[in-house]
Design a binder for these strands. Structure first.
Lengths: 195, 195
DNA sequence: GGTTGATTTGAACGCGTGTTCATATAATTA
DNA sequence: TAATTATATGAACACGCGTTCAAATCAACC
């Protein structure tokens, strides 16, 4: 039972999180054991508790980190300006942000069921914050008189669903480049909100 | 260990399936035990094996039944006609068909990970069939010269994602009636495919 | 009414699970 | 250098899991 040479929490902790993220996304939280995660890192399961209080916290903190990062980046990257410019920025942002994070967005949507009630509330609130960001853009476009959106809440949900669906089929080695995907989706979103 | 009076496989089997569907949708396949399903029906776990060979087959057959029914109903209800009429029929069909089946569509998307490889292939093929139905409508509209769709495959995926997302937020006791939802989504889809 | 088949229970099997904790080794600090 | 802290193992605990199957009761048939 030697301490592995060169081991350090700043090395091992991120590896534990990356292994958990990958396995949760691939198989689902409930189907993945702590022994599996440990094996992926090259540890025994008991070691994981140096890095996470328990399994639920591991999932929750992965999801929360993703949502926090998403919201921070969104605030920064979707700049002020007229509604159409902001909408374009939002669509581009959403697509590029998530393209390198298929696993994160996957669990953010698919593992809500496996959160404790209080953890669920936290993540739900963060998701609503993100949705509200888009809805505010739609509302601005409406008051600027350039969008035609009968129900901004429903339109928000439809557009988010459309954009989020990309991760289910997009492959980096696929037929379309990220720029092409962005362009195609911008074209559709622009039409959805337009006259 | 009495046989329950009045029990019959034509009564118990559907109740087992309904309980499994509900619990799988609510908690996820891997997180739901056979003892939980049995409890929901009012049986012991050992009795379930009179109705399903195993847990995986229970999930698979629920998913397959849903997809088979969806495809059969779609073929019947999305009639011949010009592309715009068929697209409208498709959107209306998708929304109304799924509104009463939130649990079914939920597991059809979220429990793919828990299928064995061969079961996954079967369900995937059925999903592609459904998507191809919409894509064929888009192609028809293109050749009729009434749709402007730069990439029919991507548009198909975007529209399906939009429509399928309804089940994540729609509530029968919510602010919108099914007709209102259909109208809103038709309006958006019409714009997506139009000039 | 007796026989056969259908349906259920309860017990058991052979695993697997999340978690704890004493112990050993590596790294850091005084 | 010795003491302290960090990091990992391995064993164990107290469950739970999917599944099987003998036995008991109800239903259907002859």
């Amino acid at each position: 039972m030697a301490r592995t040479q060169g081991s350090h929490s700043e090395i091992t902790r991120p590896r534990v999180r990356a292994a958990a993220l990958k396995l949760f996304a691939e198989h689902g939280y409930a189907a993945v054991s702590m022994r599996q995660i440990a094996r992926e890192v090259g540890l025994q399961a008991g070691a994981l508790y140096n890095y996470t209080p328990d399994k639920q916290d591991l999932l929750f903190s992965l999801m929360k980190a993703h949502m926090d990062e998403l919201l921070a980046a969104c605030s920064e990257r979707v700049s002020q300006g007229d509604a159409m410019a902001r909408l374009r920025a939002f669509v581009d942002f959403h697509i590029t942000f998530h393209m390198g994070r298929a696993d994160e967005i996957f669990i953010a949507y698919m593992e809500l069921r496996n959160l404790t009630p209080e953890n669920f509330e936290t993540i739900e609130a963060l998701r609503r914050s993100y949705e509200n960001h888009l809805e505010a853009i739609l509302a601005a476009g409406l008051s600027e008189g350039i969008f035609d959106v009968p129900d901004s809440k429903v339109t928000t949900l439809a557009v988010i669903a459309m954009l989020t669906g990309i991760t289910t089929w997009y492959r980096p080695d696929g037929r379309l480049s990220p720029e092409e995907v962005s362009e195609l989706y911008w074209n559709m979103v622009r039409k959805v909100v337009g006259a």
